[in-house]
Design a protein around this nucleic acid. Sequence first.
DNA 1: CCAGACCGTCACCAAATTGTAACCAAAATA
DNA 2: TATTTTGGTTACAATTTGGTGACGGTCTGG
Lengths: 226, 226
Amino acid sequence: MKPRILVVDDEPEAVELIEFNLKQSGYTVSTATDGAEALKKARSQVPDLIVLDVMLPEMDGFEICKTLRLDASTSRVPIIMLTAKAAEIDRVLGLELGADDYLTKPFSTRELLLRIKKLLARGQAGELSENLLRFGDLSIDTPRHLASWREKPFDLTATEFKLLTVLAQRAGRVQSRDQLLRDVWEYDSLIDTRTVDTHMRRLREKLGPASKHLDTVRGVGYRFVE
Amino acid sequence: MKPRILVVDDEPEAVELIEFNLKQSGYTVSTATDGAEALKKARSQVPDLIVLDVMLPEMDGFEICKTLRLDASTSRVPIIMLTAKAAEIDRVLGLELGADDYLTKPFSTRELLLRIKKLLARGQAGELSENLLRFGDLSIDTPRHLASWREKPFDLTATEFKLLTVLAQRAGRVQSRDQLLRDVWEYDSLIDTRTVDTHMRRLREKLGPASKHLDTVRGVGYRFVE
DNA sequence: CCAGACCGTCACCAAATTGTAACCAAAATA
DNA sequence: TATTTTGGTTACAATTTGGTGACGGTCTGG
Protein backbone atom coordinates (compact mmCIF):
# COMPACT_ATOMS: atom_id res chain seq x y z
CA MET A 1 0.00 0.00 0.00
CA LYS A 2 1.55 3.26 -1.11
CA PRO A 3 1.54 6.02 1.50
CA ARG A 4 -0.57 9.03 0.57
CA ILE A 5 1.02 12.46 0.87
CA LEU A 6 -0.73 15.79 0.64
CA VAL A 7 1.39 18.67 -0.69
CA VAL A 8 0.24 22.21 0.04
CA ASP A 9 1.91 25.20 -1.57
CA ASP A 10 0.54 28.20 -3.39
CA GLU A 11 3.19 28.16 -6.10
CA PRO A 12 2.18 25.70 -8.80
CA GLU A 13 5.77 25.11 -9.93
CA ALA A 14 6.84 24.19 -6.44
CA VAL A 15 3.91 21.83 -6.05
CA GLU A 16 4.65 20.24 -9.37
CA LEU A 17 8.29 19.71 -8.54
CA ILE A 18 7.55 18.06 -5.24
CA GLU A 19 4.72 16.02 -6.65
CA PHE A 20 6.93 14.68 -9.41
CA ASN A 21 9.65 13.64 -7.02
CA LEU A 22 7.31 12.01 -4.55
CA LYS A 23 5.59 10.03 -7.26
CA GLN A 24 8.99 8.92 -8.49
CA SER A 25 9.61 7.59 -5.03
CA GLY A 26 6.43 5.60 -5.03
CA TYR A 27 4.08 7.78 -3.03
CA THR A 28 0.51 8.65 -3.92
CA VAL A 29 0.27 12.42 -4.04
CA SER A 30 -2.57 14.89 -3.78
CA THR A 31 -2.08 18.63 -3.83
CA ALA A 32 -3.68 21.86 -2.73
CA THR A 33 -2.80 25.47 -3.37
CA ASP A 34 -4.67 27.19 -0.57
CA GLY A 35 -5.81 26.57 2.97
CA ALA A 36 -9.44 25.79 2.33
CA GLU A 37 -8.58 23.24 -0.33
CA ALA A 38 -5.92 21.72 1.89
CA LEU A 39 -8.29 21.23 4.79
CA LYS A 40 -10.96 19.82 2.55
CA LYS A 41 -8.64 17.28 0.99
CA ALA A 42 -7.01 16.39 4.28
CA ARG A 43 -10.41 15.60 5.74
CA SER A 44 -12.03 13.84 2.84
CA GLN A 45 -9.21 11.36 2.57
CA VAL A 46 -6.81 11.53 5.44
CA PRO A 47 -3.25 11.36 4.10
CA ASP A 48 -0.35 9.60 5.75
CA LEU A 49 1.72 12.76 5.76
CA ILE A 50 1.37 16.42 4.84
CA VAL A 51 3.96 18.72 3.34
CA LEU A 52 2.83 22.22 4.14
CA ASP A 53 4.17 25.57 3.03
CA VAL A 54 3.93 28.32 5.62
CA MET A 55 3.34 31.14 3.17
CA LEU A 56 -0.12 30.83 1.79
CA PRO A 57 -2.74 33.38 0.77
CA GLU A 58 -5.58 33.91 3.26
CA MET A 59 -5.12 31.07 5.73
CA ASP A 60 -1.43 30.51 6.33
CA GLY A 61 0.35 27.29 7.11
CA PHE A 62 0.27 27.94 10.83
CA GLU A 63 -3.50 28.17 10.83
CA ILE A 64 -3.86 25.03 8.78
CA CYS A 65 -1.51 23.14 11.02
CA LYS A 66 -3.35 24.21 14.13
CA THR A 67 -6.69 23.34 12.60
CA LEU A 68 -5.54 19.92 11.51
CA ARG A 69 -4.26 19.23 14.99
CA LEU A 70 -7.61 20.01 16.50
CA ASP A 71 -9.52 17.60 14.35
CA ALA A 72 -9.66 14.06 15.63
CA SER A 73 -9.10 12.35 12.32
CA THR A 74 -6.14 14.44 11.29
CA SER A 75 -4.56 15.27 14.61
CA ARG A 76 -1.90 12.61 14.30
CA VAL A 77 -0.90 12.98 10.70
CA PRO A 78 2.77 13.94 10.52
CA ILE A 79 3.31 17.39 9.08
CA ILE A 80 6.45 18.75 7.48
CA MET A 81 6.42 22.51 7.26
CA LEU A 82 8.23 24.41 4.56
CA THR A 83 9.37 27.73 5.91
CA ALA A 84 11.41 30.61 4.63
CA LYS A 85 12.61 32.09 7.87
CA ALA A 86 14.77 30.33 10.37
CA ALA A 87 13.21 32.46 13.09
CA GLU A 88 9.91 30.68 12.68
CA ILE A 89 11.30 27.29 13.41
CA ASP A 90 10.72 27.29 17.12
CA ARG A 91 7.10 28.10 16.71
CA VAL A 92 6.67 25.51 14.04
CA LEU A 93 8.04 22.64 16.03
CA GLY A 94 6.86 23.80 19.42
CA LEU A 95 3.76 22.82 21.22
CA GLU A 96 1.63 25.53 19.75
CA LEU A 97 1.73 24.11 16.27
CA GLY A 98 3.19 20.72 16.71
CA ALA A 99 4.58 20.15 13.27
CA ASP A 100 6.81 17.10 13.13
CA ASP A 101 9.63 18.47 11.05
CA TYR A 102 10.53 21.43 8.90
CA LEU A 103 12.64 22.42 5.95
CA THR A 104 13.84 25.88 5.06
CA LYS A 105 13.50 26.93 1.49
CA PRO A 106 15.31 26.31 -0.68
CA PHE A 107 15.81 22.66 0.12
CA SER A 108 17.05 19.67 -1.79
CA THR A 109 14.59 17.06 -2.92
CA ARG A 110 16.75 14.39 -1.42
CA GLU A 111 16.50 16.07 1.94
CA LEU A 112 12.71 16.19 1.74
CA LEU A 113 12.50 12.54 0.78
CA LEU A 114 14.68 11.57 3.70
CA ARG A 115 12.54 13.44 6.19
CA ILE A 116 9.37 11.95 4.79
CA LYS A 117 10.77 8.48 4.99
CA LYS A 118 11.86 9.03 8.56
CA LEU A 119 8.47 10.32 9.67
CA LEU A 120 6.53 7.59 7.96
CA ALA A 121 8.73 4.98 9.55
CA ARG A 122 8.32 6.52 12.96
CA GLY A 123 4.58 6.58 12.55
CA GLN A 124 4.40 2.93 11.68
CA ALA A 125 6.74 1.83 14.40
CA GLY A 126 5.53 3.95 17.26
CA GLU A 127 1.89 3.36 16.75
CA LEU A 128 2.10 -0.34 16.36
CA SER A 129 4.77 -1.32 18.81
CA GLU A 130 3.19 -0.43 22.09
CA ASN A 131 0.01 -2.42 22.26
CA LEU A 132 0.17 -4.38 19.11
CA LEU A 133 1.87 -7.72 18.83
CA ARG A 134 2.72 -9.01 15.43
CA PHE A 135 3.89 -12.44 14.39
CA GLY A 136 3.85 -12.72 10.64
CA ASP A 137 0.23 -12.81 9.58
CA LEU A 138 -1.04 -12.95 13.13
CA SER A 139 -1.57 -9.72 15.02
CA ILE A 140 -2.94 -9.06 18.46
CA ASP A 141 -4.25 -5.63 19.36
CA THR A 142 -4.83 -5.33 23.08
CA PRO A 143 -6.69 -2.02 23.37
CA ARG A 144 -9.01 -2.96 20.55
CA HIS A 145 -9.38 -6.45 21.87
CA LEU A 146 -8.89 -7.80 18.43
CA ALA A 147 -6.76 -10.66 17.22
CA SER A 148 -6.53 -11.20 13.50
CA TRP A 149 -5.00 -13.29 10.76
CA ARG A 150 -4.16 -11.32 7.65
CA GLU A 151 -6.34 -8.49 8.93
CA LYS A 152 -9.32 -10.84 9.36
CA PRO A 153 -10.32 -10.77 13.01
CA PHE A 154 -11.06 -13.94 14.93
CA ASP A 155 -14.18 -14.18 16.98
CA LEU A 156 -12.60 -14.88 20.35
CA THR A 157 -14.21 -14.81 23.76
CA ALA A 158 -12.73 -12.73 26.54
CA THR A 159 -10.90 -15.67 28.10
CA GLU A 160 -9.59 -16.96 24.83
CA PHE A 161 -8.27 -13.55 23.95
CA LYS A 162 -6.54 -13.19 27.26
CA LEU A 163 -5.02 -16.63 27.03
CA LEU A 164 -3.66 -15.87 23.60
CA THR A 165 -2.34 -12.51 24.74
CA VAL A 166 -0.56 -13.89 27.77
CA LEU A 167 1.07 -16.61 25.72
CA ALA A 168 2.07 -14.23 22.96
CA GLN A 169 3.53 -11.74 25.40
CA ARG A 170 5.78 -14.44 26.74
CA ALA A 171 6.50 -15.77 23.27
CA GLY A 172 9.10 -18.51 23.28
CA ARG A 173 8.91 -19.32 26.97
CA VAL A 174 6.88 -22.29 28.07
CA GLN A 175 4.04 -21.53 30.44
CA SER A 176 2.89 -24.17 32.85
CA ARG A 177 -0.83 -24.73 33.32
CA ASP A 178 -0.56 -23.35 36.81
CA GLN A 179 1.07 -20.21 35.57
CA LEU A 180 -1.60 -19.74 32.96
CA LEU A 181 -4.32 -20.27 35.52
CA ARG A 182 -2.79 -17.58 37.65
CA ASP A 183 -2.19 -15.07 34.87
CA VAL A 184 -5.24 -15.63 32.73
CA TRP A 185 -7.82 -16.70 35.24
CA GLU A 186 -6.37 -14.86 38.20
CA TYR A 187 -7.34 -17.69 40.44
CA ASP A 188 -5.51 -18.47 43.63
CA SER A 189 -7.58 -21.54 44.10
CA LEU A 190 -7.16 -24.77 42.28
CA ILE A 191 -9.56 -25.11 39.46
CA ASP A 192 -9.15 -28.16 37.39
CA THR A 193 -6.02 -27.74 35.34
CA ARG A 194 -7.74 -29.45 32.46
CA THR A 195 -9.64 -26.25 31.99
CA VAL A 196 -6.56 -24.84 30.36
CA ASP A 197 -6.44 -27.72 27.91
CA THR A 198 -10.01 -27.20 26.93
CA HIS A 199 -9.48 -23.54 26.32
CA MET A 200 -6.37 -24.25 24.31
CA ARG A 201 -8.38 -26.54 22.13
CA ARG A 202 -11.04 -23.92 21.55
CA LEU A 203 -8.43 -21.31 20.87
CA ARG A 204 -6.64 -23.51 18.36
CA GLU A 205 -9.86 -24.32 16.65
CA LYS A 206 -10.71 -20.67 16.17
CA LEU A 207 -7.23 -19.65 15.17
CA GLY A 208 -7.14 -22.15 12.33
CA PRO A 209 -3.84 -21.82 10.49
CA ALA A 210 -2.56 -19.39 13.10
CA SER A 211 -2.69 -22.15 15.68
CA LYS A 212 0.70 -23.25 14.44
CA HIS A 213 2.03 -20.65 16.87
CA LEU A 214 0.65 -22.63 19.79
CA ASP A 215 2.95 -25.43 20.84
CA THR A 216 2.24 -28.11 23.37
CA VAL A 217 5.27 -28.99 25.47
CA ARG A 218 4.48 -32.38 26.79
CA GLY A 219 4.78 -32.74 30.52
CA VAL A 220 5.31 -29.03 31.01
CA GLY A 221 2.75 -26.70 29.48
CA TYR A 222 2.20 -24.54 26.43
CA ARG A 223 4.37 -22.18 24.47
CA PHE A 224 3.79 -19.51 21.86
CA VAL A 225 6.30 -19.78 19.02
CA GLU A 226 6.95 -17.06 16.48
CA MET B 1 -18.86 31.99 -5.19
CA LYS B 2 -20.83 34.70 -3.43
CA PRO B 3 -22.10 33.75 0.03
CA ARG B 4 -25.88 33.69 0.30
CA ILE B 5 -27.50 35.46 3.20
CA LEU B 6 -31.10 35.28 4.33
CA VAL B 7 -32.49 38.38 6.02
CA VAL B 8 -35.61 38.01 8.14
CA ASP B 9 -37.43 41.06 9.52
CA ASP B 10 -41.04 42.09 9.48
CA GLU B 11 -40.36 45.74 8.70
CA PRO B 12 -39.92 46.14 4.94
CA GLU B 13 -37.77 49.24 5.29
CA ALA B 14 -35.35 47.50 7.60
CA VAL B 15 -35.12 44.54 5.24
CA GLU B 16 -34.53 46.81 2.32
CA LEU B 17 -31.79 48.70 4.07
CA ILE B 18 -29.92 45.59 5.07
CA GLU B 19 -30.43 43.96 1.72
CA PHE B 20 -29.03 46.97 -0.07
CA ASN B 21 -25.93 47.08 2.06
CA LEU B 22 -25.24 43.37 1.83
CA LYS B 23 -25.58 43.39 -1.93
CA GLN B 24 -23.18 46.30 -2.04
CA SER B 25 -20.71 44.15 -0.20
CA GLY B 26 -20.99 41.36 -2.70
CA TYR B 27 -23.40 38.97 -0.98
CA THR B 28 -26.38 37.28 -2.56
CA VAL B 29 -29.42 38.16 -0.50
CA SER B 30 -32.83 36.64 -0.03
CA THR B 31 -35.43 37.99 2.36
CA ALA B 32 -38.45 36.99 4.41
CA THR B 33 -40.90 38.99 6.49
CA ASP B 34 -42.39 36.29 8.66
CA GLY B 35 -41.45 33.01 10.25
CA ALA B 36 -43.15 30.65 7.84
CA GLU B 37 -41.57 32.31 4.87
CA ALA B 38 -38.19 32.35 6.57
CA LEU B 39 -38.25 28.64 7.28
CA LYS B 40 -39.41 27.84 3.80
CA LYS B 41 -36.66 29.85 2.18
CA ALA B 42 -34.02 28.64 4.57
CA ARG B 43 -34.88 25.07 3.70
CA SER B 44 -35.39 25.34 -0.01
CA GLN B 45 -32.00 26.87 -0.54
CA VAL B 46 -29.83 26.73 2.54
CA PRO B 47 -28.09 30.10 3.00
CA ASP B 48 -24.57 30.56 4.32
CA LEU B 49 -25.80 32.84 7.06
CA ILE B 50 -29.06 34.15 8.46
CA VAL B 51 -29.82 37.58 9.88
CA LEU B 52 -32.85 37.14 12.05
CA ASP B 53 -34.97 39.70 13.84
CA VAL B 54 -36.41 38.57 17.15
CA MET B 55 -39.63 40.53 16.89
CA LEU B 56 -41.81 38.89 14.33
CA PRO B 57 -45.55 38.34 14.02
CA GLU B 58 -46.78 34.85 14.88
CA MET B 59 -43.60 32.81 15.10
CA ASP B 60 -40.90 34.89 16.73
CA GLY B 61 -37.19 34.79 16.10
CA PHE B 62 -36.60 32.46 19.02
CA GLU B 63 -38.91 29.87 17.57
CA ILE B 64 -37.38 30.13 14.15
CA CYS B 65 -33.90 29.82 15.55
CA LYS B 66 -34.78 26.74 17.53
CA THR B 67 -36.52 25.18 14.57
CA LEU B 68 -33.60 25.83 12.28
CA ARG B 69 -31.23 24.25 14.76
CA LEU B 70 -33.29 21.11 14.89
CA ASP B 71 -33.36 20.66 11.17
CA ALA B 72 -30.45 18.76 9.76
CA SER B 73 -29.70 20.91 6.79
CA THR B 74 -29.86 24.20 8.60
CA SER B 75 -28.53 23.28 12.01
CA ARG B 76 -25.09 24.66 11.33
CA VAL B 77 -25.93 27.83 9.49
CA PRO B 78 -24.61 30.78 11.48
CA ILE B 79 -27.37 33.00 12.77
CA ILE B 80 -27.11 36.64 13.78
CA MET B 81 -30.06 37.76 15.88
CA LEU B 82 -31.34 41.28 15.88
CA THR B 83 -32.78 42.06 19.24
CA ALA B 84 -34.23 45.09 20.90
CA LYS B 85 -33.67 44.22 24.51
CA ALA B 86 -30.30 43.60 26.08
CA ALA B 87 -31.98 41.28 28.54
CA GLU B 88 -32.63 38.72 25.87
CA ILE B 89 -29.02 38.37 24.95
CA ASP B 90 -28.16 35.53 27.27
CA ARG B 91 -30.93 33.44 26.00
CA VAL B 92 -30.09 34.18 22.42
CA LEU B 93 -26.50 33.14 22.65
CA GLY B 94 -26.97 30.40 25.21
CA LEU B 95 -27.42 26.75 24.65
CA GLU B 96 -31.13 26.91 24.26
CA LEU B 97 -31.09 28.89 21.08
CA GLY B 98 -27.51 28.79 20.01
CA ALA B 99 -27.40 31.86 17.87
CA ASP B 100 -23.88 32.74 16.86
CA ASP B 101 -23.97 36.48 17.40
CA TYR B 102 -26.41 39.29 18.04
CA LEU B 103 -26.89 42.97 17.47
CA THR B 104 -29.10 45.35 19.42
CA LYS B 105 -31.22 47.71 17.43
CA PRO B 106 -30.36 50.24 16.28
CA PHE B 107 -27.05 49.09 14.87
CA SER B 108 -24.65 50.44 12.32
CA THR B 109 -24.43 48.78 8.96
CA ARG B 110 -20.70 48.62 9.31
CA GLU B 111 -21.08 46.67 12.51
CA LEU B 112 -23.38 44.15 10.90
CA LEU B 113 -21.05 43.67 7.97
CA LEU B 114 -18.14 43.05 10.31
CA ARG B 115 -20.01 40.39 12.24
CA ILE B 116 -21.12 38.69 9.08
CA LYS B 117 -17.62 38.61 7.73
CA LYS B 118 -16.31 37.19 10.96
CA LEU B 119 -18.88 34.43 11.10
CA LEU B 120 -18.45 33.43 7.49
CA ALA B 121 -14.69 33.26 7.93
CA ARG B 122 -15.05 31.11 10.98
CA GLY B 123 -17.38 28.81 9.14
CA GLN B 124 -14.92 28.18 6.38
CA ALA B 125 -11.89 27.67 8.51
CA GLY B 126 -12.15 26.22 11.94
CA GLU B 127 -15.72 25.43 12.54
CA LEU B 128 -15.90 22.13 10.81
CA SER B 129 -12.74 20.71 12.18
CA GLU B 130 -12.82 21.86 15.73
CA ASN B 131 -14.19 19.05 17.79
CA LEU B 132 -16.11 17.57 14.95
CA LEU B 133 -15.88 13.81 14.71
CA ARG B 134 -16.88 12.17 11.49
CA PHE B 135 -17.38 8.50 10.75
CA GLY B 136 -18.97 8.08 7.38
CA ASP B 137 -22.54 9.24 7.65
CA LEU B 138 -22.30 9.76 11.37
CA SER B 139 -20.97 13.03 12.69
CA ILE B 140 -20.62 14.28 16.23
CA ASP B 141 -20.31 17.96 16.91
CA THR B 142 -19.13 18.42 20.47
CA PRO B 143 -19.50 22.17 20.95
CA ARG B 144 -22.95 22.20 19.41
CA HIS B 145 -23.94 19.11 21.31
CA LEU B 146 -25.25 17.64 18.14
CA ALA B 147 -24.89 14.19 16.70
CA SER B 148 -26.32 13.44 13.31
CA TRP B 149 -26.73 10.79 10.64
CA ARG B 150 -26.55 12.09 7.11
CA GLU B 151 -26.98 15.59 8.53
CA LYS B 152 -30.15 14.57 10.36
CA PRO B 153 -29.62 15.24 14.05
CA PHE B 154 -30.56 12.71 16.70
CA ASP B 155 -32.54 13.77 19.69
CA LEU B 156 -30.10 12.65 22.35
CA THR B 157 -30.11 13.45 26.05
CA ALA B 158 -27.04 14.88 27.73
CA THR B 159 -25.86 11.53 29.06
CA GLU B 160 -26.46 9.74 25.82
CA PHE B 161 -24.52 12.35 23.94
CA LYS B 162 -21.62 12.18 26.33
CA LEU B 163 -21.54 8.41 26.19
CA LEU B 164 -21.46 8.49 22.43
CA THR B 165 -18.78 11.15 22.42
CA VAL B 166 -16.51 9.35 24.83
CA LEU B 167 -16.81 6.14 22.87
CA ALA B 168 -16.23 7.87 19.56
CA GLN B 169 -13.23 9.76 20.83
CA ARG B 170 -11.62 6.46 21.73
CA ALA B 171 -12.83 4.85 18.54
CA GLY B 172 -11.56 1.33 18.12
CA ARG B 173 -10.46 0.80 21.69
CA VAL B 174 -12.70 -1.20 23.95
CA GLN B 175 -13.95 0.68 27.00
CA SER B 176 -14.86 -1.27 30.08
CA ARG B 177 -18.01 -0.37 31.96
CA ASP B 178 -15.89 0.95 34.78
CA GLN B 179 -14.03 3.21 32.45
CA LEU B 180 -17.24 4.51 30.99
CA LEU B 181 -18.68 5.10 34.43
CA ARG B 182 -15.63 7.10 35.30
CA ASP B 183 -15.44 9.11 32.11
CA VAL B 184 -19.09 9.64 31.33
CA TRP B 185 -20.67 9.63 34.76
CA GLU B 186 -17.60 10.76 36.68
CA TYR B 187 -18.17 8.24 39.40
CA ASP B 188 -15.32 7.25 41.62
CA SER B 189 -17.04 4.32 43.15
CA LEU B 190 -17.13 1.11 41.27
CA ILE B 191 -20.64 0.17 42.25
CA ASP B 192 -22.02 -2.77 40.42
CA THR B 193 -24.64 -1.43 38.14
CA ARG B 194 -26.32 -2.03 34.85
CA THR B 195 -26.64 1.67 34.18
CA VAL B 196 -24.17 1.62 31.34
CA ASP B 197 -26.02 -1.17 29.59
CA THR B 198 -29.29 0.62 29.84
CA HIS B 199 -27.90 3.79 28.40
CA MET B 200 -26.26 1.88 25.62
CA ARG B 201 -29.60 0.41 24.79
CA ARG B 202 -31.27 3.80 24.70
CA LEU B 203 -28.45 5.20 22.64
CA ARG B 204 -28.59 2.38 20.15
CA GLU B 205 -32.31 2.73 19.86
CA LYS B 206 -32.03 6.39 19.01
CA LEU B 207 -29.09 5.98 16.68
CA GLY B 208 -30.96 3.50 14.51
CA PRO B 209 -28.74 2.47 11.62
CA ALA B 210 -25.80 4.38 13.08
CA SER B 211 -25.80 2.00 16.01
CA LYS B 212 -23.77 -0.35 13.88
CA HIS B 213 -20.81 1.65 15.14
CA LEU B 214 -21.48 0.48 18.68
CA ASP B 215 -19.97 -2.92 19.35
CA THR B 216 -20.50 -5.02 22.42
CA VAL B 217 -17.37 -6.91 23.41
CA ARG B 218 -18.67 -9.62 25.62
CA GLY B 219 -16.89 -9.93 28.91
CA VAL B 220 -15.01 -6.70 28.38
CA GLY B 221 -17.09 -3.66 27.51
CA TYR B 222 -18.14 -1.58 24.53
CA ARG B 223 -16.32 -0.34 21.50
CA PHE B 224 -16.97 2.26 18.85
CA VAL B 225 -16.00 0.96 15.44
CA GLU B 226 -15.46 3.15 12.41
C1' DC C 1 -47.96 22.61 41.31
C1' DC C 2 -48.02 19.48 37.40
C1' DA C 3 -46.62 16.96 33.16
C1' DG C 4 -43.07 15.26 30.99
C1' DA C 5 -38.26 14.32 30.29
C1' DC C 6 -34.47 12.03 32.03
C1' DC C 7 -32.04 8.89 34.78
C1' DG C 8 -30.59 5.04 37.79
C1' DT C 9 -32.14 0.38 39.25
C1' DC C 10 -34.16 -3.90 39.19
C1' DA C 11 -35.91 -8.27 37.60
C1' DC C 12 -36.24 -11.38 33.98
C1' DC C 13 -34.72 -13.88 29.94
C1' DA C 14 -32.08 -15.70 26.12
C1' DA C 15 -27.76 -16.58 24.63
C1' DA C 16 -22.98 -17.01 25.12
C1' DT C 17 -19.44 -18.66 27.78
C1' DT C 18 -17.15 -21.62 30.73
C1' DG C 19 -15.71 -25.42 33.96
C1' DT C 20 -15.83 -30.22 34.38
C1' DA C 21 -16.11 -35.01 33.62
C1' DA C 22 -15.82 -38.90 30.75
C1' DC C 23 -13.63 -40.88 27.00
C1' DC C 24 -10.14 -41.54 23.53
C1' DA C 25 -5.49 -41.28 21.14
C1' DA C 26 -0.74 -40.66 21.35
C1' DA C 27 3.50 -40.77 23.69
C1' DA C 28 6.42 -42.34 27.22
C1' DT C 29 7.86 -46.03 29.98
C1' DA C 30 8.94 -50.48 31.35
C1' DT D 1 3.90 -55.34 23.84
C1' DA D 2 1.43 -53.91 27.91
C1' DT D 3 0.93 -50.24 30.96
C1' DT D 4 0.86 -45.71 32.38
C1' DT D 5 0.87 -40.95 31.66
C1' DT D 6 -0.43 -37.02 29.21
C1' DG D 7 -3.03 -34.28 26.37
C1' DG D 8 -6.85 -33.88 22.85
C1' DT D 9 -11.84 -34.18 22.11
C1' DT D 10 -16.66 -34.31 22.98
C1' DA D 11 -20.57 -33.34 25.46
C1' DC D 12 -23.14 -31.06 28.86
C1' DA D 13 -24.79 -28.52 32.80
C1' DA D 14 -23.95 -24.38 35.45
C1' DT D 15 -22.85 -19.86 35.32
C1' DT D 16 -22.13 -15.45 33.50
C1' DT D 17 -23.33 -11.85 30.69
C1' DG D 18 -25.85 -8.47 28.29
C1' DG D 19 -30.37 -7.03 26.26
C1' DT D 20 -34.89 -5.54 27.50
C1' DG D 21 -39.05 -3.72 29.68
C1' DA D 22 -40.66 -1.54 33.57
C1' DC D 23 -40.70 1.36 37.64
C1' DG D 24 -40.00 5.15 40.70
C1' DG D 25 -37.41 9.21 41.77
C1' DT D 26 -35.73 13.71 40.47
C1' DC D 27 -35.47 17.70 37.97
C1' DT D 28 -37.33 21.32 34.97
C1' DG D 29 -40.08 24.33 32.32
C1' DG D 30 -44.51 26.16 32.09
